[in-house]
Amino acid sequence: MRGEPRQAASVGVELTAGRVEFMDDLASRTYPFQEDMAFQQRWWRAERIGWIAMALVLAAALTGVFFHGPASHTIARSADGDLTVEYERFAHKTALTHFIIRVSPPLPEQEQVLIRLSPAFANTHDIDSLAPRPVRSSGGSYGLELVFARSAAGDLAIYMAARPKRFGLLSVHVEAEGRGAINIAQLIYP
C-alpha cells in the first residue's frame, strides 16, 4: 500500500503490490509530510550528550570546583609559617567570599602589625566587612596598608568578607611587615 523503500533494519519481506507492509519504526515517512529521521536521530544523540554534560557539570560543582566545597577552601602559608591566609580558591563575581589572615605569636606587646594587600586586591574586591577594625589604614601604590593591634593572646587574626566586582584570575601579594609574605591566587567566575 505504501510504495516506499524501507530501512535495511526492518523485516526482510519484499514489497509487492497488494501486500501491506509495516515499515521500520525509524524509517522516514513521506505522507502527510516528508520526514528526516536521520536528522532526528542525530538530534536525539546530541540530547543524550547534552544530558551527560549537564550531569558532569553538576558533579564538578558538588566537589566545590565552582564555589565553596572541599576543592575550593584552602590555607596558604608563608615560608616560615608565621603568616597564613585561609581563603577560597574559587569565587563568584558579586558573591561574598571570606578571607582569614593570621599572624602567629609571639607578637611583642604594643607592637602593631602592618598588613599590606597588593593593588590587585582592591581592584578586584569590594571589602564588605573587616574585623577587627584597623588602627590605621592607608592606600597607595603598594596597595592597601592596614595596621592592626595584636590580640591579648599575642597573635593576630583578621576576618574579612569581600565581594569580587570583576571576574578572572586574581593574584594577590599578602604581606605582614617583618613577619612574612604570601602570594595567593583566586579564580573568579563571571
Binding site: 525509524l26 520526514e35 536528522f39
Partner: peptide, 20 residues
C-alpha cells in the same frame, strides 16, 4: 525549532519513536 514527527501510524504506535 525542531521538526514534526509521526508517532502513531494507521492506529499503530511507533514504539521506538515514542521511547526516544
Amino acid at each position: 525549532n525542531g521538526e514534526p514527527m509521526i508517532v502513531v501510524e494507521d492506529g499503530r504506535p511507533l514504539v521506538t519513536r515514542l521511547k526516544h
